[in-house]
Amino acid sequence: MNTKIDFSHLGDRVVYVKPVAVADLPQEVQAQAEGLDELFAVHNADGVQLALVADRRMAFLLARQHDMSPMTVH
């Protein structure tokens, strides 16, 4: 499938949610992960990490609470 989708109507309010392996994070963050193997990062369009949360649902809720449009990154 190669369908182009125009997201320009969303402006700069788009954020991207992606899974992050806890093992790939700094030790201090791993210590706070409370046994989780995966966290979810929220990034702006420039790739700056805005948040790191425990699950995907929370990442989407957080984005929407801040009037952002979350998109999943694969």
Rank of each mutant, 00 (worst) to 15 (best):
M1C: 07
M1D: 05
M1I: 09
T3V: 12
K4P: 00
D6F: 05
D6P: 03
S8N: 14
S8F: 03
S8I: 03
H9T: 08
D12C: 05
D12G: 15
D12H: 11
R13K: 08
R13W: 02
V15D: 05
V15L: 08
V15T: 11
V15I: 08
V15G: 07
Y16C: 01
Y16Q: 05
V17N: 03
P19A: 10
P19S: 15
V20K: 13
A21V: 00
A21R: 13
V22D: 06
A23P: 07
D24R: 02
D24A: 10
D24G: 10
L25E: 13
P26L: 05
P26M: 13
P26W: 13
Q27H: 14
Q27A: 14
E28G: 01
V29G: 13
V29A: 14
V29P: 11
V29S: 14
V29C: 15
Q30M: 01
A31Y: 14
A31E: 14
Q32A: 01
Q32S: 02
Q32Y: 00
A33W: 15
A33Q: 11
E34P: 01
E34S: 09
G35T: 09
G35F: 14
L36F: 12
L36E: 07
D37T: 15
F40S: 07
F40H: 14
F40R: 03
F40V: 07
A41P: 06
A41N: 04
V42G: 04
V42F: 02
H43V: 09
H43N: 06
H43E: 08
N44M: 05
A45M: 15
A45N: 10
A45C: 00
D46N: 11
D46A: 11
V48K: 00
V48H: 08
V48C: 00
V48S: 08
L50Y: 04
L50W: 02
A51Q: 11
A51M: 09
A54Q: 13
A54G: 05
A54I: 10
D55T: 12
D55P: 10
R56N: 06
R57I: 06
M58C: 00
M58L: 10
A59V: 08
F60Q: 12
L61A: 03
L62H: 10
L62E: 06
L62M: 10
A63Y: 02
R64Y: 02
R64Q: 12
R64M: 11
R64S: 02
Q65W: 04
H66G: 01
D67W: 03
D67P: 01
M68F: 02
M68E: 03
S69F: 12
P70M: 03
M71K: 12
V73T: 08
H74G: 08
H74D: 12
